[in-house]
C-alpha cells in the first residue's frame, strides 16, 4: 500500500487567462502505515495534491502509482482505487443525503461487492468507531443531528468501506477542542490498526503530536519533507513558508533564547514537560 508520485505537475485551466500552476514537479513516496502531515500557506496546492492522489483529477504531467500501478493508466480499474482510498473533505457533512444514518453510512458499500451481512457489520463498526451509539442513531435522519454528530456520520460513511489509506483535507477546522481531540484520537487509532493517514492541517500542535512525517508545500513545490521531530527546527524558514509551530516548540525556543540548553527537536508537550520541571527545580542550565 504505497503511494508514489513521480514528477507530478498540475495546471488549472491551461491555455486561458485563468491559467494557474498549482503543482510543479512533485516527487514523493508515502509508505504503508505512515501518518503524514501536509502543511503550507493557503493556495500552495495541498488540496490539489490530495485530489490527484485519489484520482479525482489527472496530473498535467507526471505519474501517480498506488501499489505500483499507474492510477491514470489506460487499463487501471478506478473502483479499485475507490476501495483502497477514502477521502474526507473539509466540512464532510455536506455529503449527507439519505433518510437515515444507517443508509447514509452504507451508501459507499453499494458497489463494494460485500454481502449484506458483511456490509451491515461494516456500518455498525463505522458508526461505533466515530463515537456514536449505533442502536440509538441508526434510524434517525442525519439532518436532525447536531453539527458535530453530522460530521461524525459523514466520516463514518467514508470509514465504512474500510479504506487502507485515509486522506483528510483540513478535517478539524471548525471543531471544538473536545471534538477535535476525539477526532485526532480516532485517526491515531486507525493508524495503529495499519491505515495510512495523510492529513492537511494548519494546526501544528495536532500534527506535531500525531504525524510521524511532515511535508510542506510552497507555491506548488515541495519545500520540506522530513520526520516531524526534525521538521520544526528552522523557525525562520517555517516563518517564510507560512507554517506555524507547536506551542511546545515555541516554549522550547524561548527557553533556549533565555540561555537554557534545550534540544531543537522538542515538539510535543510530553517532551517539554521534564525539561520545564527540571528548570523549575533549578537543576538545569
Amino acid at each position: 500500500m504505497s503511494i508514489e508520485l513521480s514528477r507530478v505537475s498540475y495546471t488549472y485551466s491551461p491555455g486561458t487567462v485563468f491559467e494557474t500552476v498549482a503543482l510543479q514537479e512533485i516527487n514523493l513516496t508515502i509508505e504503508d502505515g505512515e501518518y503524514l502531515g501536509l502543511m503550507g500557506k493557503t493556495g500552495c496546492g495541498k488540496s490539489t495534491l490530495l485530489q490527484l492522489m485519489v484520482g479525482l483529477m489527472q496530473p498535467s504531467r507526471g505519474q501517480i502509482f498506488v501499489d505500483g500501478k499507474d492510477i491514470n493508466g489506460r487499463d487501471y480499474v478506478r473502483a479499485e482505487l475507490r476501495r483502497k482510498i477514502g477521502m474526507v473533505f473539509q466540512y464532510p457533512e455536506i455529503q449527507l443525503f439519505e433518510t437515515s444514518v444507517e443508509k447514509d453510512v452504507a451508501f459507499g458499500l453499494k458497489h463494494s461487492g460485500l454481502s449484506k451481512a458483511e456490509a451491515a457489520d461494516n456500518v455498525r463498526w463505522a458508526i461505533e468507531i466515530v463515537g456514536l451509539d449505533y442502536d440509538k442513531i441508526r434510524s434517525v435522519s442525519p439532518f436532525s443531528l447536531s453539527g458535530g454528530e453530522k460530521r461524525r456520520v459523514a466520516i463514518a460513511g467514508i470509514l465504512a468501506a474500510k479504506p487502507k489509506i485515509l486522506i483528510l483535507d483540513e478535517p478539524i477546522a471548525g471543531l471544538d477542542p473536545k471534538g477535535r481531540d476525539a477526532f485526532l484520537d480516532l485517526t491515531q487509532k486507525l493508524n495503529a490498526d495499519g491505515v495510512t493517514i495523510i492529513m492537511v492541517s494548519h494546526n501544528a500542535d495536532a500534527l506535531s503530536k500525531y504525524a510521524s512525517r511532515i511535508i510542506i508545500l510552497d507555491s506548488g513545490r515541495l519545500a520540506l519533507d522530513s520526520p516531524s521531530k526534525d521538521a520544526f527546527k528552522d523557525l525562520a524558514r517555517l516563518e517564510t513558508l507560512g507554517v506555524g509551530v507547536s506551542q511546545a516548540r515555541e516554549v522550547a525556543h524561548l527557553l533556549s533564547q533565555c540561555g537554557f540548553q534545550t534540544p531543537a527537536d522538542i515538539i510535543r508537550y510530553e517532551e517539554l514537560q521534564p525539561l520545564l520541571l527540571s528548570i523549575a527545580r533549578g537543576g538545569h542550565l
Partner: peptide, 18 residues
C-alpha cells in the same frame, strides 16, 4: 464550487457519475 465538492465527495465514496 459546492457542487464540485459534493460531486467529488460522493465519487470518492463510490458514486458512479462517470
Amino acid at each position: 464550487e459546492e457542487t464540485d465538492t459534493i460531486r467529488k465527495a460522493q465519487m470518492t465514496r463510490g458514486a458512479r457519475f462517470d
